[in-house]
Design a protein around this nucleic acid. Structure first.
Lengths: 243, 243
DNA sequence: GTTATGCAAATCGTCAACAATTTTGTAAAA
DNA sequence: TTTTACAAAATTGTTGACGATTTGCATAAC
């Protein structure tokens, strides 16, 4: 239940309204894979669990669906998203595009205060890594990218990237390699050097390599079969009724 | 991959579920300024107007709020967004970032079929322009950018840009100059030349200039006072009780 | 004349019940 | 044995009603 470093949305209002509470809890459960990809989310069960009515759950569903973390199928219900390989590739490709612009902008306007913010964040990342707090490390790693977006000083980009990072987290949880391979903090160090160095091209290249690293560490060779996707499990499509 | 509930925004054809219908109608009304920025949207009135219950309206509100076209204030209701100057600038800045990547990608993978799609679209733009169909021209102009995003072959980017274009439309409607200044189709022509020329840098530069043109044609000098925004009307902020 | 107080109207927030749809289970017919 | 038809259960879709909050207005107090 306790999620110390729950990803926090920047909704302007500091207080957490009960509706946000439900959204956050479900978000955390999905990213932790306590709710597995493909799992059906039954409104009434969730309503009882959270002690609210179905209307609230429905509203939370709309938010999550908008973030592409669940799938809403008319008259069928809500299912935890099962990002396909193609989707995963597109998400990281999109991030490359966006974050290329971000690092260029940050590099151009870098000042001492901003550099210090990045350094402080990296220190936190290293701390979590050395203490073996894998969960915190993953969250902080995502927040590193979000910090850069914030330093780019564009709320539109920041919010979009926040969603992409959430989506990335689900993809990583779904396709990650058996070995931890959590060495991205080295990439982040290198990125800081490039950013403070003032060379926009190098910083952009660094970021591109970093994102490719993350993507390439995933096991994107074969489609992960969803629990109900017998087509891919048995290597055939459910087209004809009798074969 | 199945996307059963994909929101299709610009096409009026096809089966339109009643919920999408409501979203579309409100969207159109906002972009046409039949619903003016700042106007309060009363749930029950809209429910009666559309002949549905408030729950439906509420769901539509969530979608529109997500697109930043309306503002949801707890216990107060929904209001048509009044994008500030800062927001307007950020939106166009974000588009520069995104569409820079888009045109580079499109330039790299350009083939005859794609070039033909763009030409066909430009022809439609010119036709609307010559026939004086201002409304169609504006819509087509937005769809031109969307077409490029589609040719970049990344659904994530495409959907995000779609939202940004909607937001841009509201901004343009709110801050547009008195004179029509609808000469963006020339920019689009130039863009096509750059795209087919294969020079990614030039294409990107073209797009950047084009977006700056649109932005600079807006009257972003002073904040447009919302109907109730006395702070800007009287040039002071509503901090102290008696001034 | 101005400010404070309380009442009334309007509107949003929430819910529980009912209707429609899909899924599952069972049995009859070919 | 296989297919089809039908009924029952589970789940989503929708609605109208009720309580909570905000807003507007009238009245009273200073």
């Amino acid at each position: 239940m306790a999620h110390p470093a729950e990803p926090q949305r920047f909704t302007g209002s500091g207080k957490l309204r009960p509706e946000e509470q439900i959204y956050q809890e479900m978000l955390g459960a999905i990213l932790d894979r306590r709710l597995e990809p493909g799992m059906k989310l039954i409104e009434e069960n969730l309503a009882k669990t959270f002690g609210v009515s179905r209307a609230r759950i429905r509203a939370a569903f709309l938010q999550l669906a908008h973030d592409k973390l669940i799938n809403l199928v008319p008259n069928r219900g809500a299912f935890v998203s099962e990002p396909t390989i193609a989707e995963a590739i597109e998400v990281f490709s999109a991030r490359r595009m966006i974050e290329d612009g971000v690092v260029r902008k940050v590099t151009a306007h870098m000042n001492d205060d901003q550099a210090e913010q990045i350094r402080a964040h990296l220190q936190a990342e290293h701390k979590a890594h050395h203490e073996g707090d894998h969960r915190a490390a993953i969250i902080l790693s995502g927040e590193f990218h979000l910090l850069l977006a914030r330093l780019a000083n564009n709320l539109v980009i920041e919010e979009f990237l926040e969603r992409l990072i959430l989506r990335s987290s689900l993809i990583i949880a779904m396709y990650e390699s058996p070995q931890p391979a959590d060495c991205s903090h080295d990439d982040h160090d290198e990125l800081l050097r490039a950013l403070t160095g003032g060379d926009a091209d190098e910083a952009a290249s660094c970021m591109a390599k970093h994102l490719d690293n993350i993507r390439d560490r995933l096991q994107l060779q074969r489609e992960k079969p969803g629990k109900t996707d017998f087509a891919s499990i048995f290597g055939r499509h459910p087209s004809s009724k009798a074969g």
